[in-house]
Computed example of a mutant assay.
Amino acid sequence: MSLELNEQFQKVINGLTEKFPGDVIDVYQSTGDTFVRVTPGAIHDVCTYLKEEQHFIYLIDVFGTDRFTSEDRFEVVYNILSLRDRLRLFVKVWLPEEDPEIASVTGIWECADWFERQTYDMFGIRFTGHPDFRRIYMPEDFEYFPMRKEFPLLGIPGSIELPSSTPDPE
């Protein structure tokens, strides 16, 4: 991997590729940010290493995307920050369309709790080992995931009872 990284980032990437040689799939830069794609099975160990050894102590966000491809349809992105070194890193994993599932990182960063619940609620990506895994926005019995690309723009008629749009007569 030949990227033009600053010295601090190069140490982080070298440490990752040495510690997880078969799990680091891709490293690239885009719009001034650095991205590392890893295998889904290694996400918990990679995040633990990044927090404990590389001082990425601040999890800014976890979010999902629907790549809408036939293979590895979903993506989970972890936006992390090293306050000490002033570095931002995006760690990504790709997941299959059928049974998208990945280990929770709430044991590493407690703030991942609601991020992971939101990602499940919108995309249907399950986080194993999550301490309170339930829907956060949609009703528990809602069978759909609104941010998936096949979800209709106007929603699914009758799936959720909506309030009346006509004013009450007084």
Rank of each mutant, 00 (worst) to 15 (best):
G107E: 08
E110P: 13
D121I: 07
G107L: 00
A112M: 09
D99A: 13
V93R: 01
E98I: 04
E97G: 13
D113S: 10
D113V: 04
G107D: 14
R126I: 12
V91S: 05
F115H: 15
R117G: 12
Q118H: 12
T128S: 15
K92C: 05
I102Q: 05
T119I: 03
W114H: 02
E98Q: 11
D99C: 06
G107W: 10
W109N: 08
K92T: 12
R117W: 01
F127M: 10
E97Q: 07
E116H: 01
A112I: 00
F123E: 06
V105N: 09
M122W: 14
L95N: 04
T106I: 06
L95M: 02
E101I: 12
E101V: 14
G107C: 05
T106Y: 04
E110D: 14
I125Q: 07
E116K: 03
D113A: 02
W109Y: 14
F127G: 07
F123N: 08
L95G: 07
L95I: 05
E97V: 00
V105T: 00
L95V: 04
D121H: 10
V93S: 01
C111L: 09
D121N: 08
Y120P: 04
E101H: 09
D99I: 00
R117C: 08
W94G: 13
I108V: 13
G124S: 12
A112L: 10
T128P: 15
F127A: 09
V93C: 03
Y120W: 14
Y120H: 11
V91R: 00
Y120A: 01
G107S: 13
E97S: 08
S104F: 14
D99S: 13
V91C: 06
E110C: 03
Q118N: 11
P100T: 05
W114A: 00
T128I: 15
V91W: 04
R126T: 15
E98M: 02
A103H: 11
